[in-house]
């Protein structure tokens, strides 16, 4: 279970020099990568960035052994419910959450990683018909769930030892919330995208979970998913992906879009499009955004990377000869892309 070291290999063609293969992780006991993420691991006074890989029945923690070499530190065996998502907690160490379920999330569990006391624990954080979950700064997890016609939007706080403290209920919109994003630099502001293509803004503090504004994204890009939000000069900028957008002559086949909203008037305007590179057939499948970098798996089995400020594709990873790409995630820190293949191999690229 020691990952093989690799010499960085530049890609040919588009993105040459912008993505360099650094390491390859392959869990010999798993056949299919469900998700991949990173987590800070603090032990004996030092802090290291570890990789977390998930397959349906287990979650593995990988530790850097030497530059470009990784070793498996621990494996959590899960029960009968398959893992479907890792829910990373930004600015937190030794703690990660996972979502388990079939078609939708049925459970959120936290996994604790403290080696000194050999405490690699797991425990239930929330159960229900959960539609979306996101880890936030300050060891918080927001989630939306539905029981019949009633929707609950809830913020859960975790202590340093993982145990859940009291939750806070946020005012739900009528329609189901399908994705969340923190508003960067505004700890009390949170946005979400809904099933009818609206952006919802909440005020999240210890006292209230007010719903401040609901703004429609527009009919041209249905089923938008929010990935990132920030406020600048009185406008709220939201990075959206468009898994169901139709190809158009003016914008090509859009994957990501930066939209500026005026929260005071609920008016909006598209700022930048990031479309599939010319010659790439198919559409956006799933992706991840960190700062101004966006990465997405395309239906062709390739991974494309964009600079959102320029709206340009900067790198393209074609599908491998034996396995196509299934996952694209950015590491918590540093310019590192985690790319998962269908056969369970996870490749780390320096970007």
């Amino acid at each position: 279970d020691v990952a093989e070291p690799l010499t960085p290999v530049p890609l040919g063609g588009l993105g040459e020099e912008s993505l360099q293969l650094v390491s390859k992780l392959k869990d010999s006991s798993s056949s299919c990568a469900v998700d991949v993420s990173t987590v800070w691991w603090e032990a004996a006074g030092s802090r290291e960035l570890c990789v977390v890989t998930a397959c349906e029945s287990s979650v593995c923690l990988w530790k850097p052994l030497a530059p470009d070499r990784w070793g498996k530190l621990y494996t959590w065996q899960l029960g009968d419910i398959p893992v479907i998502q890792i829910v990373p907690l930004p600015d937190t160490h030794n703690l990660v959450c996972i979502a388990l379920g079939d078609l939708e999330i049925g459970e959120i569990r936290w996994l604790l990683l403290y080696s000194e006391s050999d405490s690699f624990k797991q425990s239930l954080l929330k159960a229900g018909n959960i539609k979306a979950a996101l880890g936030l700064k300050g060891r918080r997890v927001v989630n939306s769930s539905r029981t019949g016609q009633e929707q609950q939007v809830e913020m859960l706080s975790l202590s340093e030892l993982g145990r859940s403290r009291d939750g806070q209920t946020l005012m739900p919109p009528e329609e189901t919330v399908l994705a969340f994003a923190e508003v960067e630099g505004m700890r009390e502001a949170l946005v979400g995208t809904t099933a009818v293509n609206s952006i919802v803004v909440w005020s999240v503090n210890l006292k209230t979970g007010q719903l401040l504004r609901k703004m429609h994204v527009g009919y041209s890009y249905p089923a938008s998913v929010c990935h990132r939000a920030y406020s600048d000069s009185g406008l709220l900028f939201v990075v959206l992906s468009h898994p169901h957008a139709k190809e158009s002559e003016s914008c090509g086949n859009p994957a990501f879009r930066v939209v500026a909203f005026n929260p005071k008037t609920a008016q909006s305007r598209g700022v930048m499009f990031s479309s599939l590179p010319p010659g790439q057939a198919g559409r956006y499948l799933e992706g991840d955004v960190r700062d101004a970098s966006a990465a997405a798996v395309l239906t062709s089995g390739a991974i494309a990377v964009w600079d959102l400020l320029l709206g340009q594709c900067t790198a393209l990873l074609p599908p491998g000869p034996q396995s196509s790409w299934a996952l694209a995630r950015w590491a918590t820190t540093g310019a590192c892309l985690l790319a998962g293949q269908r056969d369970g191999t996870v490749c780390l690229y320096r970007y």
Binding site: M186, E188, A189, V201, S203, T208, Q210, L211, L212, R213, S231, S233, G234, L235, L236, A260, F261, N262, P263, K264, T265, Q267, S268, R269
Partner: peptide
Amino acid sequence: CSESDLGPISLNWFEELSAEAPP
């Protein structure tokens, strides 16, 4: 507060909407 093509904008939009919203 200033005018834009998205209507009047406010740098304090979050505080203002929080004060206006029902608790």
